[in-house]
Design a protein around this nucleic acid. Structure first.
Lengths: 343, 343
DNA sequence: ACACCAGATTTAAACGCTTAAATGCGGGCA
DNA sequence: TGCCCGCATTTAAGCGTTTAAATCTGGTGT
């Protein structure tokens, strides 16, 4: 692997000149530029990014720490974040913790500030411990997550209004006449989807509808989790007419459980999720859900992080993601008589 | 951010000693170790991985270049590869090209050998140009892909027997009595799934069944692609009794198209895919498919790459992934009379 | 013909760490 | 008491860049 100095020797100049050819071609005489470029081509030289990073004190890499790479929410977000980062001349390192706080801890500890210029932590479902780890880091760190009073100080923060999302979902179901609603809450490792549930409860309260805690199933944030939760709900509350899942993946699991029992959606039971991942519109029936605007979250977060890196203002910054928005598809319908007598 | 020399000064030793405490604690007197460790703790020192990489000529990072992060096949593979890499003390950089050869080119050009100690390229569906780019690189590179005579020289290579996968799928359908079979072939950017089709044709030939080229739809490797292909097939070949999709994502799209028309699976049309991503068993009806053993592919590939990095034997190595295996679920059934008269 | 100046190039230090080789130190042995 | 040796530590060079400051060059103005 050729180095700068080999190029310099071949071109009959010093490394400083070669470096300038690479970075400020304007400062070098055209004839020299040509000579150097010829040498570069001849040797197949490519700059060593490690050395460059060390010399410049900047690696142009940012890390994206997320709890689960197989949950499609994240890849959809990663894709956009990566594109934005690339446009701004940064590499994105994707770090998957698999919901293991140890791993998250290790990544943050090792990478932040020593390999990456900054870190974007997707907190959704991520363990609290990991977040705690972030305080006192010097490298720019941006958190995208639910609104947590405890965290909102100290760290730049992109806030997603999950509470509102739960509320929107509830309002939709209420408007359709549903009263007996099963709830499936994802918990990741640390029970992080409570706000969605709170928003949901809040809407019921506002409508004067009693909320039955026994209708809540709290499960792992996966398709099988949703399946299992639905099975439980069906056995304990056979009279429910709708299911609210705190995210689309759980809702997908729910739809399977219903399909396996020959229960029709939305004919027998309506189903609503949150997030609007691609799968939501691909399910059959297509899933009614509350869109969180994944792409916007990705853009806002990564841009905030890069802004902070390039222009370190010390004050933590809070940015709000777009408001959640109801997307009505085919999995919900008005309550009709007969519902209550199915079970 | 504290540096080695600050730690050294605080502990009253030189940087060499601190470095040794970090890397060969055996070589340092216990009392000194304690003193240095105290200094490290006091300053919150964490080694700069860039500097370390530069000094050692090894970054302990490997890149994983893949064509699409939103195709669930890849996240499932990434997850395993990352775990293995972590166990072997490497970081995994995930690089998504979004099927854009330019991006793949840029990643390989910039990262291989200058940031990462090695690169694992998942060729499935990746552009030929990108592969060409790999020749003549000095950094270890491993390719996981279909068997290509053109590529098998020159590069270490994990070979997945896609041809056999297509064959297995066809044999299954033939055994069930299907003769009019629609085919959906994914093409990524470069028409890379031909081998699966060839295997399929081969099996038909062996069974003495004529193959109708007009039954083949070639589409983008996505859910909507599968949907669209199925719609076309239904209009041109209403009498088909089965659909073979070259991967599960396409099959998922197909299942939607069928559902939207009230066509039952497998009652009216049988459906088979390839890969066995998680979605396959989560679909309803669950998808019959040919398992490629994603996790095994991931393990084999990443281990090969790391072996090559740690122990550079110059000769290219070919490794075979496990043979594809039929997984029968609910989306296929024997041909029954009445099929031919539906359309 | 001279001093001056801008532009082009070089010098040399720095980035934070590693590592082979050199040094210093104290104890065991004769 | 003096020598040798092994252990612990330091020295110093090197990894491949960048970059501010220094140097050199030739052309300009007078």
């Amino acid at each position: 692997m050729a180095t700068l100095s080999e190029v310099a020797r071949l071109a009959g100049v010093t490394t400083a000149t070669v470096s300038n050819v690479l970075r400020n071609p304007g400062k070098v005489r055209p004839a020299t530029v040509a000579r150097v470029e010829a040498a570069i081509a001849q040797l197949g030289y490519r700059p060593n990014l490690m050395a460059r990073a060390l010399a410049r004190g900047k690696s142009c890499m940012v890390a994206l720490v997320l709890p689960s790479i197989t949950n499609p929410f994240y890849p959809e977000l990663v894709r956009v974040a990566e594109r934005v980062a690339r446009q701004r001349k940064y590499f994105l390192m994707v770090c998957n913790t698999d919901e293991d706080p140890e791993i998250g801890h290790a990544y943050l500890n090792q990478i932040a500030g020593t390999l990456a210029d900054g870190v974007l932590v997707l907190h959704m479902g991520m363990a609290t411990e990991v977040i705690e780890e972030l305080r006192g880091r010097h490298a720019p760190i941006v958190l995208a997550s639910e609104e947590f009073e405890d965290f909102s100080d100290g760290l730049p923060h992109v806030i997603v209004n999950f509470r509102r999302a739960g509320q929107v979902a509830a309002e939709h179901l209420l408007k359709l006449g549903h009263r007996k609603i099963g709830v499936i809450v994802g918990r990741g490792l640390e029970g992080m989807q409570h706000l969605r549930l709170e928003g949901f409860k809040h809407a019921l309260l506002d409508a004067g509808v009693a909320f039955d805690e026994s209708c809540v199933q709290c499960v792992l944030d996966t398709v099988p989790g949703g399946y299992q939760a639905t099975s439980s709900l069906l056995s304990t509350h056979p009279d429910m007419t709708a299911i609210f899942a705190t995210n689309d993946l759980l809702a997908f699991g729910a739809s399977q459980a219903l399909a396996d029992r020959g229960i029709r959606i939305p004919g027998d039971i309506s189903l609503i999720g949150i997030t609007d991942i691609q799968l939501a519109q691909q399910m059959r029936p297509a899933l009614t859900t509350v869109a969180l605007h994944i792409q916007e979250i990705a853009k806002i977060s990564i841009n905030l992080l890069l802004d902070l890196i390039e222009n370190p203002g010390h004050q933590p910054i809070l940015v709000r993601a777009p408001e959640p928005e109801l997307v009505v598809r085919a999995s919900t319908s008005s309550l009709r008589r007969g519902h209550l007598h199915r079970g």
